[in-house]
């Protein structure tokens, strides 16, 4: 059963009709952890705001939990949980006051759904009398998640919950999401960090308002069309410049300590030729081997299309 369905949904802004979302269609199944992966300005926030009934689409239809996002906005508002990207809670209220406030506004109480937030809440409970403005980034995030969960939503929308958060807190946050998934809550999450994509059940890669690809992270990775090499040598920046002008280079870009490289000719012969060529150009300690592509490779490859 589908929790969220989008059918050719479009959204434009302003008099110039600047396109933010361009006929997006996708479905999210019940209980799924679905990721919208794309850079800032790709249209992620617009999609979230339409699904949470905060914006009206200019074209297409969409349902959340079977309710139409335009007609049945009241039902949707009763049922979903939402954590906006810039959400910063009430800085001058304490942790406890924030949670109580949102629980009451959603017509429930902390006690009623305590089991749902317990795992997360116990981590911030020791500071429950501290004001939200005085919390660390990681703790704010946990509090925000508690507030979004407190009414036991059927679908949870998290708009860039990990942006600007350091890698350690990000990892913790994703572990919390995995545990929530076991409670049968459908989670739709957006992120600009490609490395987080693999933590989702299914993902949509999105850029300039368009969906580039939707699938499970594994399948997306498998669909990478070319053979991918990683290569490094002692002068990395010169190596990049050299490979970019090498005639048989299909694509080459930096990737952590390596360069990721695809060649027009995928034979072993071509590999040897290249190493020889680089040695002639004066590169030392050349290290080259095949590598499994990641989501980021796929995204770059899709963007180049």
């Amino acid at each position: 059963m589908e929790a969220v369905v989008l059918n050719n949904v479009s959204k434009t802004y302003g008099k110039e009709r600047k396109v933010a979302v361009d006929s997006v269609s996708l479905t999210v199944n019940k209980g799924e952890l679905f990721g919208l992966i794309g850079p800032d300005g790709a249209g992620k926030t617009s999609i979230f705001r339409m699904l949470t009934t905060l914006l009206l689409p200019d074209g297409g239809t969409a349902t959340v939990d079977g309710f139409d996002i335009v007609k049945d906005y009241k039902q949707i508002r009763n049922n979903v949980g939402y954590m906006p990207g810039k959400f910063s809670l009430y800085q001058d209220l304490t942790i406890e006051e924030n949670i109580n406030f949102f629980a009451t506004v959603f017509g429930t109480s902390v006690e009623e759904n305590y089991d749902l937030i317990k795992d997360i809440y116990v981590q911030i409970e020791p500071f429950k009398n501290r004001r939200a403005g005085k919390l660390s980034g990681g703790m704010k995030q946990k509090l925000a998640l508690c507030c979004a969960l407190i009414h036991k939503p059927t679908v949870l929308f998290l708009d860039e919950p990990t942006t600007g958060v350091d890698p350690v807190s990000r990892k913790e946050f994703w572990e919390m999401l995995k545990r929530l998934k076991q409670q049968d809550i459908t989670i739709v999450v957006s992120t600009p960090y490609m490395d987080e994509a693999t933590l989702c059940d299914r993902i949509a890669l999105i850029q300039n308002g368009r969906i580039l690809q939707i699938d499970t992270p594994d399948k997306i990775v498998q669909s990478y069309p070319d053979k991918l090499y990683q290569i490094k040598a002692d002068r990395m920046y010169d190596l990049l410049k050299e490979l970019n002008v090498y005639p048989k280079t299909l694509s080459c870009f930096t990737f952590g300590e390596y360069l990721h490289l695809s060649l027009t000719d995928e034979s072993e012969q071509a590999e040897k030729e290249l190493i020889q060529h680089l040695q002639n150009k004066g590169f030392h300690n050349i290290e080259m081997g095949a590598v499994t592509p990641g989501i980021e490779d796929c995204f770059i490859q899709l963007l180049k299309k």
Partner: peptide
């Protein structure tokens, strides 16, 4: 200070090209 937050992977690499260039 976090110059590439939220930027797409291709632009991020172009940005680093600029950085390398400046360092050169």
């Amino acid at each position: 200070d976090e110059p590439t937050g939220g930027v797409d992977p291709v632009t991020r690499r172009q940005f680093w090209d600029l950085i390398y260039n400046a360092a050169d």
